[in-house]
Every structure is written in C-alpha cells, then in structure tokens.
C-alpha cells in the first residue's frame, strides 16, 4: 500500500470513529431514560419478587415462595389459558383485517394523496383515549343497546342477545377496535416498499392473482406481519382494563390479577407473577422475531 493510500485509510478510520462517537452522545439521553425507567424498574420487580411479605409490609429477604405460590396456583394456568385464547382470536381477526385494509390502501387506491388521507382516518382514533373508545361500545352492545334494538325492531330476533356485552365477544370486539391499527401500520409500511412492477412481472410469468399473493405479496409483507403480530399479542397479554370492564368482571387477565394483588398490597406476589409474564412474553417475542431481522427492517443505516 502506498503512503498516500495508508493516509487515506487512516483518515477514513478516524472519520468513522468520530461518527460513532457523536452517535454515542446522541443516543445517550434515550439510553439514560430507558435505563432509569425500564431497566431499573424491571430489576426492582425481580428484586421484590423474592421478598417476603405479611399483611402489613414487604420484608426484604430472599424467598422463592412467591414463585411457588404463583406457579402452583390453578388460577394462574386458567388466566394464561384465557389470555392465550383471547390473544389468538384477536390476533387472527386483526391480522386478516389489517392485511386487507393495508392492501387496499397501498395497492387499490389510485391517488397517493387519498391513500394518505384514508390511512390517517384509520390512525386518528389511535391518538384518542383507549378507555373512552372501549366504553363507547357499551351503548351499542348492551341488552338495550343499539344492536339489540335494531335486531328486535327488524324482527331478526325476538329476545335481546345477551352474549353481545360482558362476554368474550365484547372483549374481543374492543381488542380489535383498539389494536387493529398496530397491525395496519407495519403491514402498510412493508407493502409500500413493494415495487408495483413486481405484480406485472408475476403476471408476465403466468402467475394467477392468488399465486401472486402467495408467492410475492405475502413474503414481502412478512416483516410487517411479524411486527404487527408482536404488537397485538403483547398488547392483549398485557391488558387488564378491557378484560375487566368489557367482560363485566366475569373474566380476569394475568395483569388484572396483578392489579388485584397490588390493591391488597401483595407486592411480592404480584412481582413474581410479573416476572413470569415477562419471561413468557420475552420467549414469545424472541420466537416471533427470529422470523425476521426487525432491526434491518426498521433502521436505515448508511
């Protein structure tokens, strides 16, 4: 290597390092906030989960009783089974709905401006209160609600439908209402990056519409589907208020049981339950993320 080439390489290296140093400084505030308000709190949860407690106070120490109590409880199993069922149904519905909506917006709306407008129409409710959106189903689904009234007056039914409110049904309706946007946005992003010429290339090769969907669109939307699935599943698994209000108290979730623990000051018990939930979710998310390199999908590096 000539002297000048060595010099150029050295300068290049130095520039490289100066970039990563400024990057480090720029990332520091984010790292600080997340360490203080995510890492440290989670460590606190783990710490408290091995503390003892009595009726009045939490006593620092080390015990695995809390875990034993949570894990041996039949309630825990039934809570997880309930949440897995609700999460699975919600996931399936939001996936189909989100995929259809994103596909429509990306590939069927001719004007880009209109597509953005319709996309925003889907997004706006996300910026309003979840609790308000949840309770807005009450006047529709109740025994005297609009849906029952409409069905009764049209003569489709003769008795009000009871399963509409305070049931699995109303819980899932609320979940779909609240969380479909988390499916739409990532799938919309993934689909927006598909070159429309691929449809013609596929047709040119003799593929039917269904084959194009299966062999071209689905694989290229995979990253969005994976990301959306992670959002929806973790949001449902972490819910406590929808399940409480919309089931009328007949269902409980893993987290709503924690809320009850906390309200009776059983902090260590709740903490143990939280740690178990975090482990379950971490395994689940790690499993799903293996399907796709999320970082490569999201971060545009030079």
């Amino acid at each position: 290597m000539s002297a000048s080439a060595t010099l150029v390489a050295a300068v290049g290296r130095r520039r490289e390092r100066s970039w990563s140093l400024s990057s480090l400084l720029l990332a520091l505030p984010l790292a600080a906030v997340l360490v203080c308000f995510v890492v440290a709190p989670l460590i606190s949860v783990v710490a408290v989960s091995v503390f003892r407690y009595d009726n009045f106070a939490v006593i620092p120490g080390f015990t695995l009783e809390n875990y034993a109590s949570v894990l041996s409880s039949r309630l825990t199993l039934s809570l997880y089974l309930t949440m897995i069922r609700l999460a699975a149904i919600t996931w399936a519905v939001t996936l189909v709905l989100g995929f259809c909506v994103a596909y429509f917006l990306v590939f069927h709306v001719r004007s880009k401006l209109i597509a953005i407008g319709l996309f925003l129409a889907c997004t706006v409710p996300f910026w309003t209160s979840n609790i308000i959106r949840m309770i807005s189903w009450l006047p529709l689904l109740g025994r005297q609600g609009i849906i029952n009234q409409a069905l009764l007056t049209t003569g489709v039914i003769h008795q009000p439908l009871g399963f509409l409110l305070y049931s699995d049904f109303s819980v899932i309706v609320s979940y779909v209402h609240l969380f479909t946007i988390f499916m739409i946005v990532p799938i919309f992003n993934a689909m927006s990056r598909i070159d429309p010429a691929l449809f013609e290339a596929s047709r040119d090769a003799g593929a039917s519409r269904w084959q194009t969907m299966r062999l071209v669109v689905l694989p290229l939307s995979k990253s969005g589907i994976v990301l959306g699935s992670v959002f929806v599943i973790t949001l449902v698994m972490g819910d406590f208020y929808v399940v409480k209000v919309m089931s009328g108290g007949s269902l409980a979730s893993v987290v709503s049981a924690m809320v009850d623990d906390i309200s009776t000051l059983l902090f260590p018990h709740a903490a143990a339950s939280a740690v178990i939930l975090l482990v379950v979710l971490t395994l689940l998310v790690a499993g799903i993320m293996r399907l796709v390199d999320i970082r490569r999908e999201l971060v545009a590096e030079r």
């Binding site: 070159d195 010429a197 691929l198 013609e200 290339a201 596929s202 040119d204 090769a205 062999l215 071209v216 290229l220």
Partner: peptide
C-alpha cells in the same frame, strides 16, 4: 410473450 422490465422487477 415475456417482458423484461425497466427496473428489472426482480423479486
């Protein structure tokens, strides 16, 4: 017929 696209449209 077969077409070769301007941007190649490779999958």
């Amino acid at each position: 017929t077969a077409m070769m696209f301007q941007s190649y449209a490779l999958f």
